[in-house]
């Protein structure tokens, strides 16, 4: 199976949030990397998990499927999911797939955390 072309790092954000910095491509092949990052962010004290798409280089429909799976895991564990750093192109894709109705899209990290 092709290797995931993405790196994800998890860091502490403000107000008990966790931020996942995504650098590379989101495709079906990054399931392991994405779920590992989610597991690192999924702590009892975590209120909101913020996805930073600023370095997103490519995304296909398999990647969108993974994001909705991650969303369900977050909802099950009472975490809110928010995103920022999306280019206009990827905002349009979130709108087309109606993922933006479930994952809040924000201009920057501060507003993503503040609104969650």
């Amino acid at each position: 199976m092709p290797q995931a072309q993405v790196a994800m790092t998890v860091r502490d954000g403000a107000n008990g949030s966790k931020v996942i910095d995504i650098d590379g491509e989101i495709t079906a092949f990054c399931e392991g990397v994405l779920m590992d990052a989610y597991s690192q962010a999924d702590k009892p004290e975590t209120k909101v998990i913020v996805l930073n798409f600023d370095q997103l280089g490519y995304m296909n429909s398999g990647g969108i499927g993974l994001l909705v799976t991650m969303l369900i895991r977050a909802q099950r564990n009472n975490h809110r999911l928010a995103a920022y750093g999306l280019s206009d192109h990827y905002r349009q894709i979130f709108s087309l797939t109606r993922l933006d109705e479930a994952i809040g899209i924000f201009e920057d990290e501060a507003s993503a955390i503040a609104a969650a």
Binding site: Y58, N60, H89, Y90, Q92, L96
Partner: peptide, 10 residues
């Protein structure tokens, strides 16, 4: 973006 022409228009 590299995938611009791969997606349907919004």
């Amino acid at each position: 973006p590299r995938d611009r022409n791969n997606w349907a228009p919004n």
